[in-house]
Design a protein around this nucleic acid. Structure first.
Lengths: 240, 240
DNA sequence: AAGTGGTCTAGACCACAAA
DNA sequence: TTGTGGTCTAGACCACTTC
């Protein structure tokens, strides 16, 4: 838990209370004025917390009425934002995902990666290929690349667990935002080698560009999913 | 242009100036204090506008340094949020998308739709099936359903143009947010009938659940894309 | 009329970056 | 040390919903 950031703590608290049913679906939260008394803070701070809840899809703000608690159970899958496998695991029954590291090492960027990362071709890059077995089937192949300059050390051991836990908690990398791109591609030999393709000749490819707070791209990951097992959920507020 | 909403006007203005190069990529915007003087407003209002720019991916805020203008040209495709075909058109060369209405009419909800919309089975629902021909190929099939109770009148003519323009500007429907779900499905006979499938036997299906400000679901649309032409871009800030 | 969320203000203090 | 963005406050007025 972060020590300061009152509005995040309030967000966490309300979020928890919505998830555990203290505030039930289709009821109205206490008003912003009431909450500002309850949490002994200003209304604007409460509003920041509520804005986060709304962005997360946990509530719907209704002018003149209040903040409606939405049905959480309906959207418990990775809802916009970064999706690490840690998150994926926690939304499933756990123990159901088995990660295997197939390739691990350092390489130079070369043409393709140097243009993605916008670094010189001889820059060092960590190269990790992992498959994810879910309920007995290998259906996701993750090809990840990390800039060595931002991630000095990586081990196979870390890759078998959660890389993000390591990056954020050990290295304390200031990870800020990601651009996701989803396309469908024909299977490669690698896909055929590491995945249970069941005859499918295409994969859904999620390309993830992850940036640090100073806006440098430090990770590029391709998540290659078997067609029939792919699902992506995005919860988007109206533009403006 | 909306009359009030100072922060949105500032957002629009800055957005425009970034897009037309008044503020160039990789430069720093005037500081929040400077902007608050320039726009004769408080800093918090400037911050609201900048937050919108950051959410849109136009700038990156850097503590202690300023707001960095990002490369707009890299992400000019529908970036998270609702995607109407009007938007899609404006980001392409225009005139390149031809919409054909294949089915249009009123029907009752029935089992499937009544559970999606959470209305009784005899509720009236507008039913529209349209294909989109892009650069000569019919690659998208849109199956849309609108609650009659929210959209009293719809015409084939409107469907051939932009339904959203009609809903928002004529009916002034308070559209608020949408949940998107992306999966891959096997082609249906309908897909084969209306699309140029080129031998592909699967389509990428984008399921769009569009809600009003009072949280009622009023539209459900399935956008069925030919595999090789599908692309989705999402720009996500870090959670919390 | 009373209560709600939406916007806006003018100030304050903090953490961080650069000089 | 100075300037930046990040957080927080206490108040104000507005638009909307409900009574």
């Amino acid at each position: 838990m972060t020590k300061s950031n009152k509005y995040k703590q309030i967000f966490e608290d309300l979020s928890e209370k919505i998830q555990n049913g203290t505030y039930k679906t289709n009821t109205i939260l206490p008003s912003e004025n009431e909450l500002s008394v309850m949490y002994e803070t200003s209304r604007e701070t409460i509003r920041k917390a509520l804005t986060l809840l709304a962005q997360k899809g946990l509530i719907q703000k209704l002018r003149g009425k209040g903040s409606l608690v939405l049905d959480v159970s309906r959207m418990n899958f990775p809802v916009s934002g970064l999706v690490s496998f840690k998150e994926l695991q926690s939304s499933m029954g756990r123990d159901e995902i088995v990660t295997t590291v197939h390739e691990f090492g350092l390489r130079t960027a070369g043409d393709t990666l140097s243009s993605i990362f916008e670094v010189s071709g001889d820059s060092e890059i960590w190269n990790v290929i992992r498959s994810r077995k879910i309920q007995g089937e290998k259906i996701i192949l993750d090809k990840s690349y990390f800039l060595r300059s931002e991630v000095p050390l990586l081990t196979k051991d870390i890759c078998e667990n959660s890389i993000y836990e390591y990056l954020e908690q050990e290295l304390e990398l200031p990870i800020d935002f990601a651009k996701k791109e989803i396309v469908v591609e024909e299977c490669t030999d690698e896909d055929r080698e590491y995945l249970d393709l069941e005859g499918y000749d295409h994969v859904v490819v999620v390309k993830n560009y992850v940036h640090l707070k100073d806006a440098t791209l430090f990770e590029y990951t391709e998540s290659r999913h078997r067609l029939d097992k792919f699902r992506f959920v995005d919860f988007a507020r109206r533009k403006h």
